[in-house]
Design a binder for these strands. Structure first.
Lengths: 223, 223
DNA sequence: TCTTGCCTAACGACTGTTAGGGAGGCAGAT
DNA sequence: ATCTGCCTCCCTAACAGTCGTTAGGCAAGA
């Protein structure tokens, strides 16, 4: 691929990095996400993105400093925004079971609502520079650790039964990330339906599906 | 990307397609898998693959008709060989629980043993032509359907408790494919350990984790 | 003599990116 | 009310390099 030599045009770059027309930017990110999804980051050129946006390739550099920035913006839609939306659920109101169910529903719903970005975030991370990669992975790890802590606390409280909460967190995330690989809007299940069912399955996975069986550990709460 | 115009050199292509030196071929596929994993299919050029194999780019065409064939061979290691190895387990000896456990262990173990190929198969399918893509997806669907049928039969037999065996098959596969995204050889868990734990979690997921709780449906077999 | 496995050289197309300019709109000065 | 200067958003043209692939040849072994 071509070079990105350190130019004296620092001013130009700084301006392009600072959002100019925000809605136009979001529009272009959406177009790029779709193409990255269809053909992969390296499989799509700036000229192809530009053509899909009915613009010239060079004009993209008015909004974004580089192709990588276009990718990063796509990925933020998933990794940054998901954590911001979801973490409050774990610290919010309700029983551990209720909160886990809300988390899973929100997670699967987010996949359904941001399909292109999820696809891209799932397989194009390696195209990011180390610096940006680290930034994105901090969000991921925060989400993962928060879920691990939550499952540990829920087990402590007798609502779940996880031998190894950290591993259970990975297993739950592996499962609920799965629909990103196969779910399609015109498939057998609507996304809300799928989210509800996966929530129930996630409860099973962490030993929190109490109703049909009795609790594994002594608990004080009724029912 | 460059063209693949219909050439009159059909003979050359046919010869390259028929395996020549099988072990050399496998070696080159291994090198290609590794690079595809690290940088993505479109992120790696034939010259880079050649250099890693200590060869000239043009020489690769002595063994493979095209770059796509190199990718296809990488993917076969997963999608074709996995199905061939694993399907007999489902039709083999043992209780449903035992067979599911063997399947999960084999699946996770296969990921650990073929990391590069799994990574590539997980995210570079779109680079295949429709024709080859369909071929690969037939294997995937066969695996998925076989697991769905198996879970339905196991539920019928009272060993599992799946409301929707097809969906449970997807959930189990989503979970056990997960380690492909994050497992590393020098991590906290050895692959065999992880395989054993994920097998136990998969049993939970399908309602087949009898020992700590009593069976949900009437069964005759002891314990 | 034929095959295998590699080589050098070249093709045309495409890569990310930059330089530089032009049209239109808006703010402030005259 | 008009002019001036700046900012936004887009353009054309070009750069140096890389892409997948093919043609043609050469040395070693059967």
């Amino acid at each position: 691929m071509a070079q990105a030599q350190a130019t004296p045009a620092r001013a130009t770059r700084a301006q392009a990095t600072r959002p100019r027309n925000a809605s136009r930017r979001a529009e272009l990110v959406g177009v790029a996400s779709r193409l990255f999804r269809e053909r992969g980051y390296h499989g799509v050129g700036m000229r192809a993105i530009a053509e899909a946006a009915d613009i010239q390739a060079a004009s993209l550099y008015h909004h974004f400093a580089s192709k990588e920035e276009l990718l990063l913006e796509s990925i933020y839609v998933v990794d940054r925004d998901l954590v911001v939306d979801q973490l409050p659920i774990l610290e919010g109101e309700g029983t551990y079971r209720e909160r886990l169910e809300r988390l899973v529903r929100g997670h699967v719903g987010h996949i359904g609502a941001n399909r292109d970005a999820w696809w891209v975030a799932g397989r194009e991370l390696r195209a990011l520079s180390r610096e940006k990669l680290d930034e994105v992975q901090v969000y991921r790890r925060r989400y993962q650790h928060a879920l691990g802590d939550f499952l540990a606390a829920g087990t402590e409280a007798g609502e779940f039964a996880c031998d190894d909460p950290r591993l259970s967190a990975l297993a739950v995330l592996d499962m609920i990330n799965g629909p990103n690989e196969w779910w399609e809007p015109d498939g057998r299940l609507a996304i809300d339906e799928l989210a509800a069912r996966y929530a129930a399955l996630a409860l099973r996975l962490v030993g929190g599906d109490a109703p049909p069986r009795q609790a594994r550990k002594r608990r004080s709460s009724a029912r």
